[in-house]
């Protein structure tokens, strides 16, 4: 239906229209929607699409960031600047229990830190806001279990994903009906690929954090992964000293858990061309993501995205 015909829209333009339509459906069908904002490139595209969907109105719902307090400093600056620039109704939530308990990736490890500061924090924020629809930036091309995810994905009152209770989605008709307490996760860029995201960022001139571009950054190397030393909370192993390397990040998260890749791609064209030319660099990046990928199914059932 969105194929380009004798007269039709370009590939990116039709993806854009489809996403805008989904945003508007959310605004029209739910009472308390919220948009998840993780500051990364997919979130940046999401934010751009939301602005387009409702222009000249403001985005008619709040934007939620789950702050683990271990994000790159630059991400937080970027987030606050975007909020000012686009007049966003920004909500930042940190799990107060986790904060009080001093949960951090160094002492508690990636799994515990992520569970408490991300998964549980998200659930707290969604409950507190009584949101009936949460918009996220997941894409079907990310991994196998996403390939069959719905665009409007139904969650029960415990935020859990019941794979047996997902509704068939035909044409562009979305069943948005909910019983009290239930909610919906909505993924407007489901049909985008990673390459689509990058080319759209380039074509539309969308601003993304500088961390995506190769710069000289202080890093330590741990079992083949390059970790950036972003602040003085970093715990060095005996004998470790940071050294400067030309690196960039393919995904952004908590800095002690995000691996950078060696690269010279200092601008968008170089990044896209690097992705195109190299079959191993892409692979390398994915290896670093593998921690989150492996447990995606479980996280979804626990109420995370």
């Amino acid at each position: 239906m969105s194929s380009v015909g004798p007269r039709g829209l370009s590939h990116l333009k039709s993806l854009e229209s489809e996403s805008i339509e989904i945003f508007r459906e959310v605004a029209a069908s739910f009472e308390r929607p919220v948009m998840m904002y993780s500051i990364g490139k997919d979130s940046s595209v999401l934010l751009h699409l939301a602005r387009k969907a409702f222009f000249p109105s403001r985005i008619p719902f709040p934007v939620l960031h789950i702050d683990t307090r271990w994000k790159f400093r630059e991400m937080i600056e970027f987030r606050d600047r975007m909020a000012r620039q686009h007049d966003l109704d920004l909500i930042v939530h940190t799990n107060p229990d986790g904060l009080a308990a001093g949960i951090n990736p160094f002492d508690h490890g990636s799994a515990v830190h992520t569970d408490i500061m991300k998964t549980q924090a998200l659930r707290q924020a969604l409950n507190a806001g009584q949101y009936d629809a949460a918009i996220g930036g997941a894409r079907r091309d990310e991994e196998k279990s996403r390939a069959k995810e719905r665009i409007f994905s139904h969650r029960n009152a415990q935020h859990a994903w019941d794979p047996k209770n997902q509704r068939p989605e035909l044409w562009r008709i979305f069943n948005t009906r909910l019983a009290p307490g239930e909610s919906m996760r909505v993924f407007p860029i489901s049909n985008w690929t990673e390459l689509d995201v990058w080319t759209y960022i380039y074509a539309e001139g969308i601003e993304i954090p500088d961390l995506y571009f190769a710069r000289r950054r202080p890093v330590v190397e741990r079992s083949g992964t390059l970790i950036m030393v972003d602040d003085d909370r970093f715990r060095f192993n005996p004998g470790e000293t940071p050294r400067e390397e030309m690196i960039r990040f393919r995904t952004l998260g908590c800095y002690p858990l995000s691996g950078g890749i060696r690269s010279d791609a200092a601008d968008l064209p170089s990044i896209i061309m690097e992705m195109q030319a190299s079959r191993t660099s892409e692979r390398e990046g994915r290896l670093i993501d593998s921690d989150s990928v492996g447990s995606m199914e479980k996280k979804k059932q626990e109420g995370y995205f």
Partner: peptide, 12 residues
């Protein structure tokens, strides 16, 4: 094994 309904998967 995970009890997931197998319905429609989209591949790119």
């Amino acid at each position: 094994e995970q009890g997931i309904t197998i319905d429609v998967a989209y591949r790119f």
